[in-house]
Structure formats: structure tokens, C-alpha cells
Design a protein around this nucleic acid. Sequence first.
DNA 1: ATGAAGCTTGTAGCGACTATAAGGTCAAGT
DNA 2: ACTTGACCTTATAGTCGCTACAAGCTTCAT
Lengths: 141, 141
Amino acid sequence: MSTRTFTVGQLAQATGTRAVTIRYYERIGLLPSAARNASGYRVYTAQERDRLRFVRRSRALGFSLEDIRDLLELADHRRSSCAAVDAKITQKLEQVRQSICDMQGLEQELERLSSCCQGGVIEECRIIESLGYEPGDGHRR
Amino acid sequence: MSTRTFTVGQLAQATGTRAVTIRYYERIGLLPSAARNASGYRVYTAQERDRLRFVRRSRALGFSLEDIRDLLELADHRRSSCAAVDAKITQKLEQVRQSICDMQGLEQELERLSSCCQGGVIEECRIIESLGYEPGDGHRR
DNA sequence: ATGAAGCTTGTAGCGACTATAAGGTCAAGT
DNA sequence: ACTTGACCTTATAGTCGCTACAAGCTTCAT
């Protein structure tokens, strides 16, 4: 049995998180209060490392800390249905797909703007014009 | 000649911005300090409306307020080359494309996770497992 | 005259960190 | 034994782009 423990810095290393972020997660109650050694240093177990990994992977998938709080709560009830978990995943998937669409809209608009730049001066710039701006004559010589 | 003026609320209406946001833009110096009428209300001209429109369209394209500060500075120098403007657009386009790629990665990962849910209980849930979490036995009956 | 809507200012809050300060602890080297 | 440097502790404030709230003044329609 592995009884390896971690300091906050080692846990940071092992999970690709910053130590300050780990303390932040503890402060907001996303992670439980860590045990302390004689001099007050936080001490973590492999299980806590896994929990943090779960948090970080969920974050990387786009879940908010509130979402993750819910996911952890769900995950801790081993005998409950995982339908709620799947629902969360599906919902996030929908959000991500919507974001992709939005971004593709931006991409097209930026392409259009870029292509209409002929390399002249601001005064005739179609980009600025396209963005709805007619600068004043403060600098018109 | 149109000498129409706007109150902050009318400007909000005309540009799809909230009045508080307009005041916020003024406070951080993104928009110049507005003129005031006798009772201290802000009074805007059509030119200021256009400037705000430019800000909002740029925001909608994904530019940060700092980016927009730069764009406005560029746009106000009518005789300068618009190469710098085009560079900003191109750079943002690259960022947007990168974001789309990232999001598509997320999309795939979420699809994979969702498809591996067989509708059982958390204990056997591949989703939770895939996210690197092995819950403790606090709830194991 | 009254009430609602709109304006003013200032301050505090959101999410998810990040940065800074001021100090305590530990291991290694001299 | 002492110093150095890396690590740990706490608390507080800052980031971005707003949003919300409070407390009061103005304008407008009824």
C-alpha cells in the first residue's frame, strides 16, 4: 500500500496546479481543509491528489468551479445513478458547440475585415469604416 | 445638419449598451468625459455615438478594452498607415482560430465521455473514472 | 401634486485566479 | 553554528468587464 503524502508544492507539481490555486480551492471549500503537520504545513494524500486531478480535468473541459462542486457531490455518492453526471456533460457539450459556432462567426467577420484592408491610410481604411467609426477631424492636418 | 444629442439612456438604446457600461467606459478613460447639461446630465453627440458603436463592435469581435483603446488611438490618426489596424485584426483572427481548435478538442473529449456512460451507478461510471477520480468509501453502503 | 422613470455619485460584488507582503520552516553547505 | 535559499504560512489587494446596489436629484406624464 502506498502511503505517499504530498506538500502543497508537491501536489501542485503532481497535478499541474499552482500552490496558490490549491489553497484558493481549499478556501472556497472546493477541496476539504487539508491535514497539517507539526509546523502547520498542509499534508495531502494520494486520494486528495486524485480529487484535485478530477477538479483540474473538469476545469480543462470548461466546467466552472460551481459545476465541479456539483460533480464532486455526485461522484461521492457511489450508489446513485450517473444520469445526472451524463446530463452535466451533455449540457456542457451543447455550450461548447454553441461557443464554437459563435467563434466561427467571429472568424468570418475578422476574415472579411482583414481582406478589405488595402494598405492605405486610416482615413480610407475600410476596417475602421466597417466598425462604424468616422473619426473627427482633430488630426486632418 | 443633424445636431441630435443623446442622454446616456438614449445612447444606451442607440448602441445596445447599458447606461452603467457607458459610464464605466468613461470612468476608465475609454470614452472621453461627456459634456453636461445644466442639471449635470451627460449629453452625447452623434460622433460620440459612433465612437461607442466602434467600441461595441470591436468588443463583439473579441477585442479587449485595452485592444480597443489602441484601435481608437490608431483610428484617430487619419493619416497614419492602417497596417497596424490590419495587424491587430489578423492577430485577433489567429487567436480566434486557436480558440476554435481548443474548443473542438473539448467537444471531442466531451463526446467521448458522454458516449461511455451506460446509465449505471456512479460506482461504475466511466465518466467519473475517466476524469481520474476514485471516490473514497464514505458512501459505500 | 404625485409618482414613475431616468439621471447622478460611490461602493461592492462576480469568477477564477494572480500578485504582493511579511513572516515561519527546513535542508544543505560552509 | 550559521547562513542561504527554497519552501511553507497568512492576509490582502488586484485583474477584467462589467453588474448590482444605495441614496439622492431631475424630468415628465397624469
